[in-house]
Design a protein around this nucleic acid. Sequence first.
DNA 1: CGATCCCTTGACGAGTTTCAAGTGGCGTGG
DNA 2: CCACGCCACTTGAAACTCGTCAAGGGATCG
Lengths: 248, 248
Amino acid sequence: MGEVVSINAGMRGPEAEARCAACPARRSGLCAAADTGSELACRLGGLSERVTLEPGDVLVRQGDAARHVFAVVAGTLKVTRVMADGRAQISGFLSGGELLGLPGMECGTYVYEAVALTRTSVCRFNRDRLVVLTDDFPAVRRRLLAMTAGELAAAQEQMLLLGRKSAIEKVASFLLQLQAKAARRGVGGTRVQVPMSRAEIGDHLGLTIETVSRCVSKLKTAGSIRLVDTHTIEIRDPTALSELAAAA
Amino acid sequence: MGEVVSINAGMRGPEAEARCAACPARRSGLCAAADTGSELACRLGGLSERVTLEPGDVLVRQGDAARHVFAVVAGTLKVTRVMADGRAQISGFLSGGELLGLPGMECGTYVYEAVALTRTSVCRFNRDRLVVLTDDFPAVRRRLLAMTAGELAAAQEQMLLLGRKSAIEKVASFLLQLQAKAARRGVGGTRVQVPMSRAEIGDHLGLTIETVSRCVSKLKTAGSIRLVDTHTIEIRDPTALSELAAAA
DNA sequence: CGATCCCTTGACGAGTTTCAAGTGGCGTGG
DNA sequence: CCACGCCACTTGAAACTCGTCAAGGGATCG
């Protein structure tokens, strides 16, 4: 379990813009608010540092001073809260285009831990300077507010899942969620990459590793899914899964 | 189950300001960003309509067009998501100073239902005009972002509770949460008002009404709490509750 | 080739839900 | 004024889901 591995900092103007132009999260994340070549794009680029993480690397630690906001460029992070006795709850998995670091802005410290699941790269923004930037650019602050609002809606959805769904419903919902998220990033199709371990899925769904495994097996036996390998699942019967997920 | 009961709309300048000056949420909610008598205070006041709700009145319905943002002035609302088969999850209870209506801002419809628990009054802001207002007033948008970020942190806390805590831990946490919230509104002390029914507590904690009742009885027998009446609880041993709550 | 890690599967038991009955407060109507 | 019904809450017993404990399989790595 290492720390941040490589930081590609202090770029100026053209360098930063070149980096942003090639960014896979260019159109989906916070930066979707900025037109390429605009003054805003320039300032956003100058404000950010690119950070690369290896699997297991810790990006933020529970209790650290909250000085940055992060935008995931590629890869996947898990956001975890840990109780004193070790019980953990993964509030979410973040992938390309998503934002990390808004909650806890007022209390000043991160109230969760963020760890890379896969090789991951993120853009790091100084929190205060980002806030100042929003003063000049309405598009950025609207995007920021909209994204945070979206996260809140997702959090409420997750509460419904945690509080009111059975184990198999939770797993079915989770798989569909993974598929939908992948599709939003342009990786459509029936094959879904599952970068997280069974333990991490369990910590996200409020289940044990064994129950997750059993539910996956049950869905497999029912013919709703097929396991290409442990971390690749093919969705064969989306309708059956949807019925189990039984959303809103 | 009625609808919105009374709307006190269309006030201008002095009228609105007088109403705001007397508002109990004046210093805690969104409006804490505005100094009394300032231009901002004037515009905020002019933008808002006061709505009064009786217990059971529905403020927003799942699926309605999301045209407004609400600030709770006094009273308590519950925010619920309902599944097709009737299972419900209350994502939160809102009281004085809290905000409703941010999530779902992008998708355009409310994805939850908000119902008054007690006689409640709220300030209703047109969503679009509020957004425009943030263009002119950095203080408002920072407050808005900070409040949303705070809500997100609370949502994550609730996920930890739902996913990883036992029934008795959930109930203990909930009671402490109620006390803390009351204290923040200036209603300190060991007696806590519990405006919600056992069923509503259950829908918030992911438990059945019977389990909630049993846990309350257990805490009573243990001497940690005392029931003044079903909706007023005296916290006798906060330490014991905290140990059960076993937070962060 | 053994060690380790992660996942799967089985058996058992605890905790929670479900089902059912009982209590107490409160408003209504006789 | 009291009987009655209604509703919310409480309590008990049985059923069930899921967690715990334990063992085994398969992949990866030294």
